[in-house]
Amino acid sequence: MHIMEGFLPSPWWQIWFVLSAPFVIMGFYALRRMVRENREALPLLAVAGAFVFVLSSLKLPSVTGSCSHPTGTGLGSVLFGPFIASVLALIVLVYQALFLAHGGISTLGANLFSMGIAGPVVAYAIFVAGKKAGINEIVTIFFAAAFANIVTYVVTSLQLALAFPAEVGGIMASFMAFGAIFAITQIPLAIIEGLVIALVFKYIVQLKPEILIKIGVLTQERAERLREGWA
């Protein structure tokens, strides 16, 4: 859910830039470290980012039929961690604004915070927690991707509510109103995105688990266990 160009008034668009900046700077350092350690990382990150971009320009089969597209950042975060995911999201958001007129430049900070920071952090936390608890990876991926989407939409509603509080009931009432109106499209979308990303993960494990083992998302034995389970 992109906030459109020009929609957030001062000082809110500046505030979200300032709040997003530390994560992006951390992301720059994480990126530099990753490239130093492994020279192959850069082109692989690039194709993963391009994949997120292409995924977000696919229209999902959805109940409402309106502008429903996946955020895709959940997968990026699970694969590379939340800081790298926020750098990828920054590039993807700029390209979405300039190539597809989704989102904008002044609202880049706010959109980055909801889609590139809050969503990925939650997805990563869910994935790590699920891994520790020994839950099946496919199930964890479903929840990670679905919640990344839901958190994104909750944060977007909050951003709009802070900028436009209600006359009666203030920020809370406004938050509920924005939340309710976006829920119509976003809740089914989150579930669909969770399903799709979980299936994508399953197919990758079936067809080319080496990728996931190489970047440390799965261990060799976990991948084999998962594949035996489906055989």
């Binding site: 020279r39 192959e40 850069l42 082109p43 692989l44 690039a46 194709v47 993963a48 391009a50 994949f51 292409v54 995924l55 696919l58 999902l60 089969p61 669909i192 399903l195 799709v196 299936l199 994508v200 993960f201 399953k202 197919y203 990758i204 067809l207 080319k208 990728i211």
Partner: peptide, 30 residues
């Protein structure tokens, strides 16, 4: 994409084969 259910499966297959192909491209590019 003739039904909703098939659509979900189809788009997942599209995305996963796209991911794997993209990854191979990335390695070739390096």
């Amino acid at each position: 994409y003739s039904s909703f259910r098939k659509g979900i499966v189809a788009i997942s297959m599209l995305a996963s084969s796209l991911f794997i192909r993209a990854w191979d491209r990335g390695e070739e590019l390096m």
